[in-house]
Design a protein around this nucleic acid. Structure first.
Length: 465
RNA sequence: GACCCUAUCGUCUAGAGGCCUAGGACAAUACCCUUUCACGGUAUGAACCCGGGUUCGAAUCCCGGUGGGGUCGCCA
């Protein structure tokens, strides 16, 4: 049997971190087993679904590199199919029209809550042998309800949580089509999962309670029941539930914040899944290792610090050429011109070991492309008379020497010795003069990359004429 | 409230009855490296929610409690 998984977001907002992990796991499982990963857009909530949200989800998936094999399928384009199945169920007696008005339903719920009961439909329009139904009112558009079994239990072996059982007595006859004839979520999911021959439903924990209804529906339709794997939630950094108004951010925001997709992916893979002590791995390795047996059943708290560490790690490994492209985009956004400056790829290579993210990298690289702007304190602290003498002497030697890092390092050292300064006493003023900062990577490398002309010009700017 | 799920260092987790004096990673602390700041290296502290069972033996199995979470829509 070919494995077929799906990711089925509803386009009511961006792709957030929880959705991204669900997609990642479903994608990895299909890849792992040589199966297919299907993208399905559950847009039947016309009021809340937007094309922008669809695009945001697609963008997020693309940024992460989670390619689907089939789809995207849009549920709104499958209305005819849903209506057809509803007709079949009505004909077969596994569904029925219910003429209860919303007001009546609200009243029923209020009553039940007052009695501290679980609110549920009481089955008043359910056809039953020997039961006499009232005459259908003419002013109510009937909904269609599913004839849920009244007795017994529904159970499944959840691939992450183990066996889960629900008594049918806990379930009511839920609505599968609204008064206007449009189908509802649980129904569409079932028809789609069946039509798309989904073998493994990997989704969020919040769907556990829908599962028994969907299984009953599947069985009423005579369809095979897929395997289910319910992933627990991801909590925010503060241990609170993630929601639109609290901490939930778009995966694209990680792009804005300078994270590399491979770092986000690696982090997400490790959040709720493990392979022994492995912490850092590529997506190829992940796909080779991924299974449903090692998924954690309890909720996990998001830890930005660990993500940061992974991001810094992947930054060190990344191709400078690629990094330069990312940094260039960020500098352009800040109106920093790089055309006349040193080779960005070389500058980036100098800093990629020391930056936590692409934005930091862009900031670190910035001084190479702008006139140094040391603060007054920096100047008074580092550009002392003795230091300026040293820089002056250095300028002379630098104007003639061989322009290679090892040679440059030697020149700085020798100059320091010649003017009676310790290395830091010359190197730090030099950094302030060149970059406007007291810290930088090795001064020899900075000199080399910056280039003789720019170095001499920047020295001239701090030295008295 | 009802139903369902869940519980190992601050955090992510390893752990499928003896391999556990509970391992790894992030974070923290200390030291080392070093021309500065980082990076890196080494080391240290830090956990099996509680109570009952089962067993020769339980972090691991069972029951109860407590904590946390999810769901109870003509939303998905």
């Amino acid at each position: 049997m070919t494995v077929r998984t799906r990711f089925a977001p509803s386009p009511t907002g961006f792709l957030h971190i929880g959705g991204a992990r669900t997609a990642l796991f479903a994608w990895a499982y299909a890849r792992r087993h040589g199966g297919s990963f299907i993208l399905r857009i559950e847009d039947t909530d016309v009021a809340r679904s937007t094309p922008e949200a669809v695009q945001a989800i697609l963008d997020g998936m693309q940024w992460l590199g989670l390619a689907h094999d089939e789809g995207p399928f849009y549920q709104m384009q499958r209305m005819d199919r849903y209506r057809q199945v509803i007709g079949e169920m009505l004909a077969a007696g596994s569904a029925y029209h219910c003429y209860m008005s919303k007001e009546e339903l609200d009243a029923l719920r209020a009553e039940q809550e007052a009695r501290k009961e679980k609110p549920r439909y009481d089955g008043r329009w359910r056809p039953e042998p020997g039961k006499i139904l009232p005459a259908p009112p003419t002013d109510v558009l009937p909904v269609v309800r599913f004839c849920n079994p009244k007795e017994g239990v529904v159970a499944w072996d959840d691939q992450v949580k183990g066996r889960i059982e629900f008594a049918n007595s806990e379930l009511d006859d839920f609505i599968i089509a609204r008064g206007d004839g449009t189908p509802t979520y649980n129904f569409c999911v079932v028809v789609d999962d069946r039509d798309m021959a989904i073998t493994h439903v990997i989704r969020g924990d919040d769907h556990v309670n829908n599962t028994p209804r969907q299984i009953n529906l599947l069985q009423a339709l005579g369809a095979a029941v897929p395997q289910y794997a319910h992933l627990s939630m991801i909590l925010g950094d503060d241990g609170q539930k993630l929601s639109k108004r609290h901490g939930a951010v778009s995966v694209m925001q990680y792009d804005d914040e300078g994270y590399l997709p491979e770092a986000v992916l690696n982090y997400l893979a490790r959040l709720g899944w493990s392979h022994g002590d492995e912490e850092v791995f590529s997506m190829e390795q992940f796909v080779r290792w991924f299974d449903l047996d090692h998924i954690t059943a309890s909720a996990a708290q998001f830890n930005t610090e660990k993500l940061n560490w992974l991001n810094a790690h992947y930054l060190k490994l990344a191709d400078p050429q690629r990094l330069a492209g990312e940094v260039a985009r960020r500098l352009a956004r800040q109106q920093v011109a790089i055309a006349d400056g040193p080779d960005l790829v070389r500058v980036v290579a100098l800093y990629r070991d020391r930056a936590g993210n692409l934005n930091e990298l862009a900031d670190a690289v910035h001084p190479f492309y702008a006139a140094p702007k040391p603060t007054a304190e920096m100047c008074s602290q580092h550009l002392t008379a003795a230091a300026l003498d040293g820089l002056d002497a250095l300028r002379g030697r630098l104007s003639a020497c061989d322009w290679q890092a090892p040679e440059l390092g030697k020149v700085v050292k020798e100059t320091a010795a010649a003017v009676g300064l310790k290395m830091p006493q010359l190197a730090i003023p030099l950094r302030v003069a060149l970059l406007g900062l007291p810290q930088s990577p090795g001064i020899d490398a900075v000199l080399e990359v910056l280039g003789r002309e720019r170095v001499l010009a920047r020295l001239a700017a701090v030295l008295p004429a």
